[in-house]
Every structure is written in structure tokens, then in C-alpha cells.
């Protein structure tokens, strides 16, 4: 279906649903966000036809940047098949007449909730994150008026104290996702609730990373090739979650895994969270334990 035909079919709504004034307002916010990496730009988030907390920020960002020549991939928990990913992908197929894909490498825009694809992103790609709580300091200081001052003065002692308390109490930083990062050496940023496993992928990525928080009305960005450093201490360096087993389907070892309960007697297996990566590996001949443990011939 051509873009015009699709837009036609979706009437009475505008291309990509949002009206042009709203798009301009969001586009301006995106440009400011890119110019001030890690700073949360307030924007007049609109009421979307899906609930707040279900990706309205990401959807508004995607709707404002997307055009007929884009190829869109939508993932939730790393997977293209989860219901909310399906629903958002369908929304853009319908309102923007855009081509969709599940292949990370084929996408020009990837909207995500909770994961960064395992396949390294390339120049020209845009990763759009759905963000529930954009403020990394929110759970330490609930007041916007206070956290805004902290960002203005780059006064992030509160976060360091909290992480250090974790170490004193638990022997480690007890934060496994939403793990705070410093962007460009200036702004403390919440990477959205991706597992900290994914944090290193943000650092100097050649892709543009955009973050949309609809309910909280904030947009922020990490331009390509920008330093994104997970907070840590010299004696407690940042480390990512590790898994004891490889993916049962494709045998991958350096990826994030989902635990799947097989029965009520403790039977469980681990499989790739990134379904595209897993399928690509299997198509290339990799086989995990469940499929007979094979590696492709060189």
C-alpha cells in the first residue's frame, strides 16, 4: 500500500496520526534534545489513542520522525512478537503506511521497550526508547523542582550516595535495570528500564538514540558517538548481568536471556530475549542444547 493510500485509509487522521503542529513541536524538542545530550526537554505530550505507560512517548517521537521511506521495527522485551510491539507496529502500518521489518539490520527506525538489540546498530539508524520515568533521580527525590536544580548544577551526589549505600548494605550495587548513566560527561540520564546488560551498547553507538516519555512529557537524546558511562566506583566497577547457560535454541553466550518455566517441578530453560538475533543465528546454522548443539561449518 502506498503512503498516500494508507494515509487515505486512516482518515480522518493526519499522516502518522499526529497533526502537523504537534509534530513541529515534538520535532523542535528532538532537535534541542540532540543539541543537549542527556538533558530532558519538556514537551507538550498529547493524548494518544493508547494508554499512558504503554509507549505514548516513543510513539509520539516515532510519529514525528517517520516518513514513507522508513522501515520500522518495533520490539518489546527484545521481541517483535509481544502483544504491545505488535499493536504499535500495526498502528504505524495503518497511520503512516510504512514498511515494517523484524530484522534489526533492515530497520531505519527501531522503537523499543526495555531492550537494545543484540546486533550492533549502524550509522543512520534511529533507536526510539519508550520511557516510563525519565528522571534518574526521581526515586531519590520525588520533586521535579528539586531534581531540576540538581541537573542545572550537575549536582549528582545524591545518586552516588545511594549507590554507595547499596554497596555498604548488600556488597554490590543492587540495581539491575534503569541503571543510571552519565551522558557526554554532563547529564545524569535514565536509560529507561533496559537491563544494565544493555548499557554498554549505548556508549558511542553510531546510531542516534531518542527517548520519549509521554506521560511525564519529556524527550531526551544521545547523539551518535557520544560517551555514555554507567556510574560506578573504582573499587566496585560496573559489571553486566551474566548468564550461566547459553541460549537453548541458538547457543549464543554473550546475549541477554529470558528464563522460561517448563513445568511445575523446577524445569526451566534460557532462550534469547532478542528474537531476531536468535532466529538469524539459527538460520546461520547455530543450534543450542534443545536443538542438538551444533555450530555452523566454517
Amino acid at each position: 500500500m502506498s503512503a498516500n493510500a494508507a494515509a487515505e485509509a486512516a482518515r480522518p487522521y493526519n499522516y502518522a496520526y499526529l497533526d502537523e503542529q504537534t509534530k513541529r513541536m515534538i520535532r523542535r524538542a528532538i532537535l534541542k534534545a540532540i543539541a543537549i545530550p542527556g538533558y530532558q526537554v519538556p514537551f507538550a505530550s498529547r493524548e494518544m489513542p493508547m494508554p499512558y505507560g504503554w509507549g505514548t512517548g516513543g510513539v509520539q517521537v516515532t510519529a514525528s520522525i517517520i516518513g514513507p521511506s522508513d522501515v520500522l521495527k518495533v520490539i518489546d522485551q527484545g521481541s517483535d512478537d509481544t502483544t504491545n510491539a505488535v499493536s504499535i507496529r500495526k498502528f504505524f502500518e495503518k497511520t503512516a503506511g510504512v514498511a515494517v521489518t523484524t530484522a534489526t539490520t533492515a530497520a531505519s527506525i527501531i522503537q523499543t521497550r526495555h531492550r537494545i538489540p543484540e546486533t550492533p546498530l549502524g550509522a543512520g539508524q534511529v533507536l526510539v526508547y519508550q520511557v516510563p520515568i525519565p528522571e534518574p533521580l526521581r526515586f531519590l527525590e520525588p520533586r521535579e523542582t528539586e531534581t531540576r536544580k540538581m541537573h542545572a548544577l550537575a549536582e549528582y551526589g545524591l545518586m552516588h550516595v545511594k549507590l554507595y549505600e547499596d554497596i555498604a548494605k548488600h556488597g554490590r550495587i543492587a540495581k539491575t535495570y534503569d541503571y543510571p548513566v552519565m551522558v557526554g560527561g554532563r547529564y545524569l540520564m535514565d536509560p529507561s528500564p533496559t537491563p544494565k546488560f544493555d548499557n554498554p551498547k549505548m556508549h558511542r553507538s553510531p546510531a542516534l538514540q531518542l527517548f520519549g516519555a509521554g506521560r511525564e512529557k519529556r524527550i531526551y537524546a544521545v547523539p551518535p558517538h557520544t560517551d555514555v558511562v554507567s556510574l560506578d566506583f573504582d573499587d566496585h566497577p560496573f559489571e553486566v548481568n551474566k548468564f550461566d547457560k547459553p541460549c537453548a535454541l541458538c547457543g549464543a553466550t554473550d546475549v541477554y536471556l529470558d528464563e522460561v518455566i517448563l513445568d511445575d517441578r523446577g524445569g526451566r530453560m534460557f532462550v534469547c530475549s532478542d528474537t531476531d538475533n536468535c532466529e538469524t543465528r539459527r538460520a546461520d546454522g547455530h543450534r543450542g542444547e534443545l536443538l542438538g548443539n551444533e555450530e555452523p561449518r566454517a
Partner: peptide
């Protein structure tokens, strides 16, 4: 459509 093209170029 053209606003989108211009914006993406500026972005």
C-alpha cells in the same frame, strides 16, 4: 511529507 523530509535532514 516535505516537512518530514526537511526535519529528518536537519535532525
Amino acid at each position: 511529507m516535505q516537512s518530514q523530509t526537511v526535519f529528518r535532514t536537519v535532525m
